[in-house]
Amino acid sequence: MILTDCHTHTQFSVDSEADIDLCVQRAAELGLAAYAITDHCECNGWYKEEHYPEKERYLRESFDYAADFEGSVSAVTALKEKWAGKLNLICGVELGQILQDTDAAKIVNADKRVDFIIGSVHQVMGEQDFYFIDYEKMTMDEIYDLLERYFKEVYEVSKTDFFDVLGHLTYCLRYMKQRNDINADISRFDDIIAEIFRNLALNGKGIEINTSGLRQGFGDCFPNLKYTKMYRDMGGEIITVGSDSHTVEDIAANSADGIGVARAAGFSRIAYFKKRKPYFIDIT
């Protein structure tokens, strides 16, 4: 089976220590048809800490993502030249919280070195990253209110042109289930999720099947088969598969399972991006 990995992190992501050279070597050893390095760039933390009001700083995991972005893109650009002809290496970025600083998003989008942009929402405006929220202190009504605000923000992101594929749509469920065994039923948001997918399809944008939930205790991909099918039903055509690896060892983890979800949803091909344009690989 031909495998790809279009969502990975290296030492240039705040939550990873994966050596970028070893990551590239591992991707080559695996014989990946496409390998994208997509280090974190959170728009709402683009500037240095002192740029933000002190009372709001707790909302941000880290600061100065502008420096992280430049470090990652510069390193990958050099590695693309080094590995030319030996690995289909893609210079990507995971662009978080696009609406929370569109000026930062515009800077990233204008950089011609970037092949591929994943658009993600890791935290709702005015809230901490889903990773840091203490769900045990929340009622189910509060949790559903948070999820409603999440999907509304993703809906607004889906109308923009600042990304190529929407990242891990159901990321919002990960930590409440993994840590607190809270199984929120998001079917109540199916109407707005369908509209998100309709916007993506109309704008020629894709979604990713993020396989990290299969190895991290969630038990499914982000999104799962139901919502991958819904994207196709809304006219979506572009699917990428990503491990969301933060270690060398996890590169391409469960990629075959992700392809299986795409196939079960009715897709006959998956995509990767070069110079912001999709290229397709048959999976039939």
Rank of each mutant, 00 (worst) to 15 (best):
Y155E: 03
K159T: 14
F162N: 12
F163A: 12
D164G: 04
V165A: 06
H168F: 00
H168A: 10
H168N: 05
L169A: 07
T170E: 03
C172L: 01
Y175I: 13
Y175E: 14
Y175T: 13
K177Y: 09
R179S: 10
N180H: 13
N183Y: 05
I186Q: 04
S187I: 03
D191I: 05
D191S: 11
D191H: 06
I193F: 06
A194I: 06
E195H: 13
I196K: 06
R198N: 13
L200K: 02
L202G: 01
G204I: 11
K205M: 01
K205F: 01
G206Y: 07
I207D: 05
E208P: 01
S212T: 08
G213R: 03
L214D: 00
Q216N: 15
Q216H: 12
G217C: 11
N224C: 12
L225P: 00
L225D: 02
Y227V: 07
K229L: 02
M230G: 01
Y231T: 04
Y231E: 05
M234R: 12
M234D: 02
G236V: 04
E237Q: 14
V241R: 06
V241L: 09
V241Q: 07
V241T: 07
G242R: 06
G242N: 09
D244H: 03
S245R: 10
H246F: 01
H246Y: 01
V248R: 03
A253M: 08
S255D: 07
G258I: 13
G258M: 13
G260R: 14
G260P: 00
A264C: 02
A265C: 10
G266R: 09
G266K: 11
I270Y: 13
I270A: 10
